[in-house]
Design a protein around this nucleic acid. Structure first.
Length: 217
DNA sequence: ATCCCGAGGG
DNA sequence: CCCTCTGGAT
């Protein structure tokens, strides 16, 4: 089995893409600002299938009532559900939040672990959520690939954009070291504002010069 | 009607 | 691989 290597021209293209995203979305860092890894982890779990606006609406109340893993671990699931109801998927999310906090207390002294294995072992935490926490809370090079990121990568025609791992590798090769925390947000914003699912606004896309599918779609 | 800052389960 | 779970946006 031959080891995959990015072609030089694609490396340069990806570098240009990151630069364009950085220039286009200088406001990305402030969109999700949380005080500690615990709050970040909870907020990312809440954000599944739901906009950041609604997440930011419920998190203040949630964290005031349950400030840390120890408090949340002994919470009544129904009370958590009531606090996060407007975020959607609340049956699973509330159950997972309490169970997740319980595991933080039982296995990690109430702290958020900093390894992929430990994070993905938490209930309600998959690869995407683990990558967000790794990158934003611990500065670990990990690109979170959600449906927005995946769609953008696919339209850009990146060589391994057939699956999530391929997208991580395609885009990760040229993400600047100091930008791991924001890279994910740039792509999210781009996927929401410009490279939208139904009718992408290619005319006002800052990546159009490097996108093979700029016109049709 | 379709899709989404997913994950778990069949 | 498929499906379901919520509510909101478009």
């Amino acid at each position: 089995m031959k080891r995959w290597r990015p072609r030089p021209d694609e490396r340069e293209r990806v570098a240009r893409i990151w630069q364009a995203l950085a220039d286009t979305y200088p406001d990305a860092r402030t969109e999700l600002a949380f005080g500690n890894p615990f709050e970040l982890l909870c907020a990312v779990i809440l954000s599944a299938q739901c906009t950041d606006v609604r997440v930011n609406l419920v998190t203040p109340g949630l964290f005031r009532r349950f400030p840390d893993a120890r408090a949340l671990a002994s919470a009544d699931v129904a009370e958590v559900a009531a606090l996060i109801r407007s975020c959607g998927l609340w049956p699973a999310k509330s159950r997972n939040l309490v169970a997740m906090a319980g595991m933080l207390v039982a296995r990690h002294r109430g702290e958020v672990p900093d390894t992929r294995e430990a994070l993905e072992a938490l209930p309600g935490v998959g690869r995407k959520t683990a990558n967000v926490v790794l990158a934003q809370a611990f500065g670990v090079p990990a690109l979170a690939v959600d449906t927005h990121v995946f769609r953008v990568a696919r339209r850009l025609g990146l060589s391994r954009a057939r699956d999530v791992l391929g997208v991580e590798e395609d885009l990760g090769i040229r993400l600047p070291q100091e930008s791991w925390a924001e890279g994910h947000h740039w792509l999210i914003l781009h996927g929401r504002r410009v490279c939208v699912a139904r009718k992408p606004r290619c005319a006002s896309c800052s990546l159009a010069a490097d996108c093979p599918g700029a016109e049709p779609w």
